[in-house]
């Protein structure tokens, strides 16, 4: 069990999200930065489906009544365990009574805290992810608050070595200002050539309307030459819609499962984490890639995570 000492309502229990229920109107939900979640789980020896805490409101404090392995990944934020500083992307053993404090990030928006054994809230619709918009899943279908006690699952055998272990950030994460890679989507050909050019050359500012549902961008107006109404259709996280205002909206983890706005592109799966770490005022750029490049990027991350899991297992001590 862990005990929340201070939290904002935007902090929630998240895992990799729900699959197979989009046709019931149930969005995927899950971590906004699945890479960081995966790394945190790998470092403490959890299964990849284990749930962790997504921290988007700071400062965040929790207490370990019992000894536990803890990993902190994602945004670069000052984290202290029992007063000692934890480096970024690091995991260590917390002793009974230790407190973990996480200050606002200096880079990025969301920090992931995984605990050995995973946050063991009851699974709902195949996942432990909280759907904050609809109010189900996770811990009582809501964000965390002071006094919440979260159960932990059985942790894997062994423990972390003295001083803990760390990971390098996943491939490409340390490259600042790299464009978001996209594949053209259904209505791409209906935008003017000038609009398509603007889309990939301009910087797009993240507005204050950025949350787990989506991210509204500001920049020049993208003109769609063919102004026909679309019938409602299924959408996935990463879909870049262009509503009549001409300014893109990127649909994310808690987006509606169907939409009707034209879609100019889709952010590739391997780059979705960057939208989970985008802050209002940040500038994003887009670059069109081929399906092969998108697949290679996904495969690279998957292979890197597999190696990290094997390496982390080797460092565990009896």
């Amino acid at each position: 069990m862990i005990e929340i000492l201070s939290s904002g309502a935007l902090n929630s229990v998240q895992d990799r999200g729900r699959r197979g229920l989009l046709s019931s109107g149930v969005c995927r939900s899950g971590a906004m930065d699945i890479q960081a979640l995966d790394v945190a789980n790998a470092l403490v020896g959890n299964d990849r489906d284990a749930a962790a805490i997504e921290v988007a409101a700071f400062p965040f404090r929790l207490r370990f009544p019992d000894r536990a392995a803890v990993a902190v990944t994602g945004a670069i934020a000052g984290a202290r365990l029992a007063g000692r500083r934890l480096p970024p992307w690091w995991a260590t053993e917390a002793l009974a009574g230790d407190e973990l404090t996480i200050d606002p990030p200096t880079v990025g928006a969301r920090v992931y805290v995984a605990v050995g054994g995973g946050i063991d809230v009851p699974p709902l619709l195949g996942a432990r992810a909280t759907d904050l918009k609809s109010g189900y899943g996770g811990h009582e279908g809501r964000g965390l608050r002071r006094g919440d006690r979260l159960p932990l699952g059985p942790r894997s055998p062994g423990k972390l070595p003295d001083g803990g272990i760390g990971a390098l950030p996943p491939p490409g994460r340390d490259v600042a200002d790299r464009p978001l890679r996209v594949l053209p989507a259904a209505e791409w050909p209906e935008f003017s050539e000038a609009a398509r050019e603007l889309f990939v050359t301009e910087g797009w500012r993240v507005t204050a309307e950025a949350d787990r549902q989506g991210c509204r961008l500001d920049g020049p107006e993208l003109i769609r030459e063919r102004r026909r109404e679309l019938l409602s259709h299924g959408i996935v996280p990463g879909t870049v819609q262009v509503p009549p205002s001409g300014r893109p909206i990127i649909q994310l983890a808690e987006a509606n499962t169907c939409g009707g706005y034209p879609k100019i592109a889709t952010v590739i799966e391997a780059d979705l984490w960057r939208l989970g770490q985008a802050m209002p005022g940040d500038t994003l750029r887009f670059a069109v890639v081929s399906r092969d490049e998108a697949l290679a990027a996904l495969g690279e991350t998957a292979g890197w995570l597999d190696r990290l899991r094997s390496a982390a297992a080797l460092y565990r001590v009896p």
């Binding site: 699959r19 197979g20 989009l22 299924g234 996935v236």
Partner: peptide, 13 residues
């Protein structure tokens, strides 16, 4: 993962 009927369209994930 997902087969999603829309209005005269179908998305497969």
């Amino acid at each position: 993962d997902d087969v999603v009927p829309g209005m005269n369209n179908l998305m497969v994930a």
